[in-house]
Design a protein around this nucleic acid. Structure first.
Length: 271
DNA sequence: AGTGCGGCCTGTCCGC
DNA sequence: TGCGGACAGGCCGCAC
């Protein structure tokens, strides 16, 4: 579920409630996430204060004096700020309790998310060290994509969803960015002109920024730190619109599968 | 080295 | 109403 705009929406929403807070307890009800939640996480975090909350790709980084907690929302994860005692529900796996009484609650029905700890620089962690540039930074531009795409035979959609190429672009926004750029998602990455990659880079940034402005996309699970959904779903041009009319040319939106992910596009507008 | 696939989980929806 | 199967926003790790 959560792609970059949803993770960033979460970060912005919870940051004011956790920054400067001291952890007084960590309640792990079910530590069986993608990787087991470290047993010593509670002992390590209690007494520590959150100095900074940053994001790299789809990873949230909680910086403290003794180290950094790395948290990923996976496919169905969400984080919520709670004030007061609210009974946990079935998939509320972890609570972080702060000195003020505020709680940060991690929910993840599918348990594809993860919560890890590193004492070192999180950017050097195995999971983060190979990530490509942040899409909203100047490091991502048409020239970069064009150069990386040389001799690549995979589809351009699979290419831009590869986190080693660009961090944070998932299935929804890959579909949407390619529509905005007028590029057929099935086209081979290595056979796209520099000019079209310039357009694609702009469209990736644009789609992500617009989604962020709407608080992300909620298909089912996603809620922000306050438990509210995102509203970008209403702006989606192709994702989940198979058979529906293209908003530009009225042709039916097509769907096929690339790398086991549903791929939506307009066969007329995207070439 | 680049590429594609299986698998990790639970929940939901659809066809029978 | 029940049941099996496909599918869902991610991504690691493995074979080729």
């Amino acid at each position: 579920m959560p792609e970059l705009p949803e993770v960033e929406t979460t970060r912005i929403g919870i940051a004011p409630h956790v920054l400067g807070e001291t952890v007084t307890d960590v309640i792990i009800r079910d530590g069986r996430l993608r990787w087991p939640v470290p047993k010593q996480l509670r002992k390590t975090l209690v007494g520590a204060s959150i100095r900074k909350l940053s994001r790299r790709g789809k990873y949230l980084l909680f910086h403290t004096e003794p180290g950094c907690m790395i948290l990923h929302l996976g496919m169905s994860g969400s984080l919520r700020i709670l004030t007061g005692e609210i009974p946990p529900e079935k998939h509320d796996h972890v609570d972080f309790v702060f000195a003020s009484g505020t709680r940060l609650r991690f929910r993840d029905p599918r348990r594809f998310g993860c919560i890890l700890w590193t004492a070192g620089d999180p950017l050097h962690h195995d999971l983060l060290s190979k990530l490509g540039p942040e899409p909203l930074s100047d490091d991502l531009d048409g020239d970069y994509l064009f150069r990386k795409a040389r001799k690549r035979t995979q589809s351009v959609k699979t290419f831009i969803m590869d986190s080693r190429i660009v961090a944070g672009v998932g299935n929804i926004y890959a579909n949407e960015a390619l529509f905005a750029a007028g590029i057929n998602p099935n086209r081979k990455a290595g056979r796209i002109t520099r000019e079209r990659y310039e357009k694609l880079a702009v469209c990736i940034k644009d789609v992500l920024k617009k989604a962020l402005a709407k608080g992300g996309t909620t298909l089912r699970d996603f809620v922000n730190g306050q438990g509210e959904p995102g509203y970008f779903r209403m702006e989606l041009q192709v994702y989940d619109r198979a058979g529906g009319p293209c908003f530009i040319c009225k042709s039916p939106i097509k769907v096929n599968r690339l790398g086991q992910r549903s791929t939506f596009y307009c066969p007329v507008c995207q070439t």
